[in-house]
Nucleic acid binder design. Structure first.
Lengths: 261, 261
DNA sequence: GAACATCGTTTCATAATATGAAATCAAGTA
DNA sequence: TACTTGATTTCATATTATGAAACGATGTTC
């Protein structure tokens, strides 16, 4: 572990939604390093375009970070294979479509076709969301080995995001069982009010879940009248993506209980 | 400039479309540094998730890079303001819609609503394209100060991408003048065969062009029969984005000739 | 099946280099 | 005018990154 490099990366990860712009003094203060050290590091990061200086002399993340995402492994192996299938899906269902990968105790959004119905301005790509209260997260949880699920539920607390969030482990486990039976997951405003989603798991060649995709929107009919049609489409798309990942469908019972190594 | 940090960033930028996965030996060879040095740097980058190890022990860019993009300055200041307007545009024209910023002698794609008509699998977000042969690039060039345009044309050569690419400076300058007259730019397969685009410039508060947005697709009618309607929509959207950026529309003649400091 | 490549990983003495106190410059404020 | 609070630059010192070499693991060749 190289100290100066770690400090440079600490600076990059210090920028956040609430603090997209930071002054040198703030960086130095929050990371407990001398101003001059922070400045040396920032100068180097700025030379590569990873950090930019704002008009008023403060600092922010630079645009050179954006091209790097094109070569990130999951984007090459999963996103670029899934994208055409997801676009076709978005076309036929007229709602936002998302692609996520599991990242520890969260899902990371890596691709989105966002409909004009979307409530939030900013794209979901780059966001992390909990596993237990999103359709994509629950699709992952439902097909994860039981001991890993138990471990995850014991580690992180089940926070309440909306009145619909499932915060009782037993209820959640029941929902995951129902999800396995159905073959797809549901999110009835559990993470965000007025957002309804249907999700399905994506498997890689070794039989493990890598992530999930979902159809998401403000229309309550997504989890009501439109559900049968949407579920068939999202599950079909997820299966085809899995096949593109080299996954050979086995008996569902095998996949459900515990994927082999 | 801190040497070890620079070397770490050199490693990150070494990954490319053709080489998304690299072995330690390759990295060490191509950057002319001892294997052990590269290994020390990679270990640090891996601890932050910026690099991941593949199943066979080689290295690739890690997913932790993706969340960083949410806080990149242009994404916060431009993309997040433009996104809702661009989604509405995509909705009404049923083609791919792109948002780009100028980055030196190129445009960088920072947001996209990609239709199922798109030829390429992978998303455009993160791609760079030349200024002189894309609708977004030419929209930027047309509203850049003349001396800067001249400088750009003298520096980089005009490469041929398709038989339609404008490689003669005089012809290009004529096209830029026509673009200013019209208020929007056209791309008739100049960068990629079977891709037709209409683009419009986006200005920030100080009156300078920051980037451009475009409607893009495989339908030749985009630059023919559908052009009048599409042009009005893309120009209207670009103007509204500019207004969101704090730009106060002046007499077009002023903007055209040379934005003031 | 033994010898040989080639790859990733670890070690550790040494010299190179990051560090950070302090001085400086620039802008805004009382 | 004096006083903050920024960013920036300098430079002597000690910390720390460096890289030669050895190691272990895997796969290939003859």
């Amino acid at each position: 572990m190289i100290g100066s490099v770690a400090k440079a990366l600490d600076i990059l990860t210090l920028f956040s939604k609430t603090h997209p712009v930071l002054t040198l003094a703030e960086i130095s203060r929050r990371l407990e390093m001398p101003k001059s050290t922070a400045h040396h590091l920032i100068t180097t990061l700025a030379a590569y375009g990873f950090i930019e200086q704002t008009d008023d002399g403060a600092y922010a993340l630079g645009k050179s970070l954006i091209p790097l995402t094109q070569h990130v492994l999951v984007n090459v192996e999963l996103r670029d294979r899934a994208a055409p299938l997801l676009r076709a899906l978005a076309d036929s269902c007229n709602e936002s479509v998302y692609l996520t990968v599991r990242d520890g105790d969260a899902v990371l959004y890596i691709y989105a076709i966002e409909s004009s119905q979307r409530l939030l301005a900013r794209t979901a790509v780059g966001d992390r969301a909990p596993l237990y209260c999103t359709s994509v997260g629950k699709a992952v949880l439902a097909w994860l080995p039981p001991d890993e699920v138990e471990c995850l539920l014991n580690t992180a607390p089940l926070n309440t995001y909306t009145p619909y969030t499932l915060t009782d482990p037993a209820t959640l486990l029941g929902d995951l069982e129902a999800t396995r039976q159905r073959g797809y997951s549901l999110d009835n405003q559990e993470h965000e009010l007025n957002t309804f989603c249907v999700g399905a798991p994506i498997f890689k060649a070794d039989g493990h879940v890598v992530g999930a995709c979902s159809v998401s929107g403000r229309d309550p009919q997504i989890v009501e009248g439109r559900l049968p049609a949407l579920a068939e489409q999202i599950v079909g798309t997820a299966q085809e993506i899995s096949r593109h990942m080299g996954y050979v469908p086995a008996h569902m019972s095998m996949v459900r209980s515990r994927p082999q190594r």
